[in-house]
Simulated scan of single mutants.
Amino acid sequence: MSDDASTSKGEWWFYHLERTSLEEALGPLLEKCLQKEWRVLIVGSKERLPRLDLGLWTWKDTSFLPHARADKAGDTLERQPILLSTESTPANNADIIVLLDGNRLPDEPSDAAKYVRCMVVFDGDDYNARDTARTQFKAAKDAGQTVGYFQQNDRGGWDKKG
């Protein structure tokens, strides 16, 4: 974990997708995490992981995001800067956890303190994921944790709301 990562724990950042696919939107967010030398665990559905895997290799013509799927990484799990998984076990010693598809931490909101940041990325048209994000937001806020809400703008970037 980088020195920067050890200074802040348990933040919840919510990203509300409205313009692009999740696979397109994650690229810039993950690139920023890697620039800070943070390890990332992405927890998504079994159906999403193949699309996300391909999307991270091809998201930008000039670069790729180094990653592996937990079900295919074998004994290299702990070395992966970005690990894609259906489980919230941080096998790569993640600083950041990204929850997709309505996934949750086992003990919310307190488990967020295990990470520098818990990022919940959800499509506004996915009612299950949206409702789960609302519940997570309220629980984190009620617990006194730092929360941030970002809504995707017309250019595909993020505007902080509230």
Results as ranks from 00 to 15, higher is better:
residue 56 L to F: 07
residue 124 G to Q: 07
residue 162 G to R: 12
residue 162 G to E: 08
residue 41 L to D: 02
residue 5 A to S: 08
residue 61 D to K: 12
residue 35 Q to M: 12
residue 65 L to R: 08
residue 93 N to E: 15
residue 83 L to A: 10
residue 3 D to M: 11
residue 150 F to Y: 12
residue 81 P to K: 02
residue 125 D to M: 12
residue 130 R to E: 02
residue 73 A to E: 15
residue 76 T to D: 15
residue 160 K to P: 02
residue 24 E to Q: 14
residue 45 S to D: 13
residue 55 G to K: 09
residue 4 D to M: 13
residue 122 F to V: 05
residue 80 Q to E: 10
residue 157 G to M: 06
residue 129 A to M: 06
residue 8 S to L: 15
residue 26 L to F: 06
residue 136 Q to V: 14
residue 49 L to A: 02
residue 94 A to R: 04
residue 119 M to I: 09
residue 54 L to M: 12
residue 161 K to H: 03
residue 40 V to T: 11
residue 85 S to Q: 04
residue 113 A to D: 12
residue 147 V to H: 02
residue 122 F to I: 04
residue 48 R to W: 01
residue 137 F to C: 00
residue 101 D to F: 00
residue 70 A to W: 12
residue 73 A to W: 14
residue 158 W to H: 10
residue 38 W to A: 11
residue 59 W to R: 14
residue 151 Q to F: 12
residue 51 R to Y: 15
residue 161 K to A: 12
residue 158 W to Q: 06
residue 160 K to A: 09
residue 78 E to D: 14
residue 59 W to Q: 15
residue 32 K to V: 04
residue 30 L to Q: 01
residue 134 R to M: 01
residue 85 S to V: 07
residue 137 F to G: 00
residue 56 L to T: 10
residue 68 A to Q: 08
residue 71 D to M: 07
residue 15 Y to F: 15
residue 142 D to T: 11
residue 57 W to G: 09
residue 85 S to N: 11
residue 91 A to S: 05
residue 82 I to N: 02
residue 34 L to I: 03
residue 151 Q to A: 15
residue 97 I to W: 03
residue 113 A to L: 13
residue 141 K to C: 13
residue 8 S to G: 09
residue 107 D to E: 08
residue 50 P to F: 00
residue 158 W to M: 14
residue 47 E to Y: 01
residue 109 P to T: 09
residue 95 D to P: 14
residue 41 L to H: 07
residue 79 R to H: 10
residue 2 S to D: 14
residue 101 D to M: 03
residue 110 S to W: 00
residue 55 G to H: 10
residue 40 V to C: 10
residue 35 Q to F: 13
residue 43 V to L: 01
residue 41 L to F: 07
residue 129 A to V: 08
residue 136 Q to R: 07
residue 52 L to Q: 04
residue 37 E to P: 12
residue 15 Y to W: 10
residue 157 G to V: 01
residue 159 D to E: 05
residue 12 W to Q: 06
residue 12 W to E: 00
residue 22 L to T: 14
residue 41 L to A: 03
residue 108 E to Q: 05
residue 126 D to V: 03
residue 33 C to P: 08
residue 1 M to D: 09
residue 81 P to Q: 04
residue 45 S to C: 03
residue 113 A to K: 06
residue 141 K to S: 13
residue 122 F to H: 04
residue 131 D to Q: 05
residue 92 N to W: 09
residue 14 F to S: 05
residue 132 T to G: 06
residue 115 Y to K: 03
residue 99 L to D: 01
residue 148 G to C: 07
residue 75 D to C: 00
residue 44 G to C: 13
residue 19 R to Y: 14
residue 112 A to C: 12
residue 86 T to R: 03
residue 30 L to K: 01
residue 54 L to D: 10
residue 151 Q to N: 11
residue 147 V to K: 01
residue 111 D to H: 04
